[in-house]
């Protein structure tokens, strides 16, 4: 299990420029307005770097809400 200084919520909050409290499991591009397709890639780039993982294209496009990031991270053995 990998430990990092930043939590998933903190990374998403930093890239999307939203409050950490708003980054809840149920949050989606509809509830977080800055979560557009380009920022989606930026969030992925940041998560991959911080947790030292690499998602497949399918995993990246399967993410529809914050909980999905947690799910794909778990597949790489990371509890976020």
């Amino acid at each position: 299990m990998t430990k990092t200084n930043r939590s998933l919520e903190e990374i998403v909050s930093a890239v999307l420029q939203v409050a950490v409290e708003d980054v809840v499991d149920e949050a989606t591009p509809e509830t977080l307005k800055s979560w557009n397709s380009l920022n989606h890639v930026h969030v992925v780039l940041a998560i991959e770097e911080v947790f030292g993982v690499r998602f497949s294209a399918e995993e990246i496009s399967s993410v529809r809400r914050i909980a999905d990031f947690r799910r794909v991270l778990r597949k790489s053995g990371i509890t976020s």
């Binding site: 990374i11 420029q17 930026h42 940041a46 770097e49 911080v50």
Partner: peptide, 12 residues
Amino acid sequence: MSFLGATLRWRE
């Protein structure tokens, strides 16, 4: 520099 680090620094 990490992408996140660069993003935050650039915003600053």
